[in-house]
Design a binder for these strands. Sequence first.
DNA 1: CCCATAATATGATGATCATCATCCAAAGAG
DNA 2: CTCTTTGGATGATGATCATCATATTATGGG
Lengths: 196, 196
Amino acid sequence: MRYDAEHKERTRALLLKEAARAIRAQGPRGVSVAAIMGKAGLTHGGFYAHFKSKDELVAEAMKAMFADIECKIDEYTGQKPPGEALAGYIGFYLSRRHRDDRAHGCPIPALCAEAPHLSGAARSAFAAGIEAVCARMAALLQGIGTPAPRQAAASLLAEMAGALGMARAMPTAEQSEFLLATSRRSLLLRFGLPPP
Amino acid sequence: MRYDAEHKERTRALLLKEAARAIRAQGPRGVSVAAIMGKAGLTHGGFYAHFKSKDELVAEAMKAMFADIECKIDEYTGQKPPGEALAGYIGFYLSRRHRDDRAHGCPIPALCAEAPHLSGAARSAFAAGIEAVCARMAALLQGIGTPAPRQAAASLLAEMAGALGMARAMPTAEQSEFLLATSRRSLLLRFGLPPP
DNA sequence: CCCATAATATGATGATCATCATCCAAAGAG
DNA sequence: CTCTTTGGATGATGATCATCATATTATGGG
């Protein structure tokens, strides 16, 4: 079946999108090559026409998900003044919506624990992604005059990722919501931002 | 082979210990029943004389690792005044030693992301463990007069777990150490504790 | 000294998985 | 209108895994 010129490219992009979703939702070890192909409407055999191995797919998907998230952060914080942007992003990050949507959310809490078991390329992409997100936070913090913005950004990201991860692990809505609300409040206060 | 009366019990305890180690180090999905049995010096078949299923093992191991960690926290913070105890524990939690020893460290950063994929019993044990650790932090915070100690404990634990998880994901020693040092400093400052 | 018992070992079963060799069909080149 | 190219399908292979039925064997009770 010879398709038009960009068909293969489109298929590859679709596979990456599905992989990025599935990997965040179920972890790299919870996702099979066949499952990804199935989600894209294809059968498992064709996979190796697009990727050398599952490891390569995971590494590429890692890049894709961070590219997507970085883009979303920029959109989200784009035109607003830095204080408002930061407060808004913290509010989103620690929201029920973000908690309940692992598949499209920040890869950091979703995949942090898997990092040591990833292939070299995937692990590098993950670390680079953390740095990139951290840099964006640092820029916003610098914009509101926080001293040592790089350090503050690391601390902020650590609490956000930790709180979201734990909130996702809690079985009852109250426990989960408590963790989200607590860190939301704590962070806004800590950085002198207006509570919503 | 008929052994003395407590032999089976001892074997079960050994299996749990090995499972608790391996699960923290490689995640529940990275560990096979046969591997655990092998570490205990047995072969895979006998497993089901001790546990109904792998899920049961994981759930029991989850309880065991939190019991162990809670005990360690109590030992660690036992006789000291609360300020010193808290500062010491933060220092340990965000140390290279803790970072490099997933197998015996806090289960929260090691297993948070796996929680949604765990069986009901294991997930409950995990959540209960988080609550227990959080309660100990709250008690120490209350001891140094922190207002809203429960909230403060949640925020503290979120940043510790998040920072440790990210530090474990960083490929270079500098990046990793930066995250540890930054959160260590930030937390000590935040709670009015003396820097080391 | 023997035998019943209980703790492991052996080996099988069926499932899932990554990977790959081979085949098929349709679209574009001539 | 034919032929070649190529994206994708089919099906196989070998590995790993959880689970379980059955065999083995050392020991303590008799």
